[in-house]
Structures are given as structure tokens and as C-alpha cells.
Amino acid sequence: MNNSSLQKKVWLSIAAIVLLFVMFVVTTYAFVSAFLSVEDNLFETAKVDIDLNGGVAIFTEEDFALEPGRSNKKDFTITNNSTVDVYYRIYLDGIVGDLQDVLRFEIYDGEELLYAADMDDFNRDTPFVSDKVLAVGETKVLSTVVVMDTKAGNHYQNQSCSFDMVANATQVRNNPTKVFE
């Protein structure tokens, strides 16, 4: 056997010894360590997300060509894109224009009247809050009717009004009083 071959063997042997020693230490440590572990405990929080009419405006400018006593009805959708069941609320925000004094809003589920309020009062403090749970992935079709006060005088001719309709959602679980953040 030549020297280089023998040298190679020696190095191989040393490598084997090192490996053996490391493994011996590792197994001995594992044996005496008395260690228990419950690995990868997972906690994931839910998503609460709601869609109002696909982001499309419910009323357009033409819809407000109203006369005293006349009304306009529009359907809209509300969809629960959350990962949990939710309650939702709807209100108006950013109202601009004089017409707000003489407009009244109503919300219907089919023929059932769910909510009615003057435009001024249809706000975040006194919103429409759903009684029913909106399940995960569920889409609800509701109607809103805007009615102009019969007593509205000529002062309101050619007046307009703009506003945002806002929907919020909140979890159903652990929330019996329907608290919205």
C-alpha cells in the first residue's frame, strides 16, 4: 500500500472518529436531557372584512331629482368577506348639501322595513345595525329608499346632496352587545 493511499485512509478515519464523537455526545445529551416539547402551537387571528355594493355608488346624481313626497328606491348588496360571522352596521358619512334637511332614508329587507331615519340622524352614532348574522361569504341584498319631505318648500329646488354610505362589520363571537370598534 502506498503512502498517499494510507494517508487518505488516516484522514478518513479521523473524519469518522470526529463524526462518531459528535454523534455520541448528541445521543448522550438527548438521553440525559429529559426534555419535552410541544412544537409549533399555532394561533391565527380572524379577518373581518365587509363589502358594500362592490364599491359602486348606490345613488347617482340623477336619483336625487326628487320632488316633495317622492321617493327613490335602490337595491344594494352587502357581502361578508371575513373569515368569521359578523354583524354589520350602515350609516351615512360626509354629507354635503342642503337637501339633507328634507330627506329621509329607509332600509328594507324585501318588504320588511328594517330602519328609518332622517338623513341627519342616519349617522355613525345612530346607524342601522343588523339584527341578523351575516355568515362567512354570505351576500345580502337590501333596499334603501330615499324620501323627500312633503313639506319641503321651493327653497330646495335645484339643490343637491352628496354623501358616503358606509358599512362596518364586527365579530359575532364574544360580542353579544354588538360592539363596533
Partner: peptide, 26 residues
Amino acid sequence: APVLEFYQGNAEHNRRFEVRNMVPGD
């Protein structure tokens, strides 16, 4: 030597947490 083990007396025990869709109050 001191040895620890999970005592398997109850099948419902010694399981890891796997909690999804947690909401406040859970």
C-alpha cells in the same frame, strides 16, 4: 436518570394548539 414523558392517560391531552380565526374574547 430523570426522564420526562407525556403521560398518555387521556387522548384529549398533550395536544398542540391549532387555533385559527381567533377573535377578541376567545
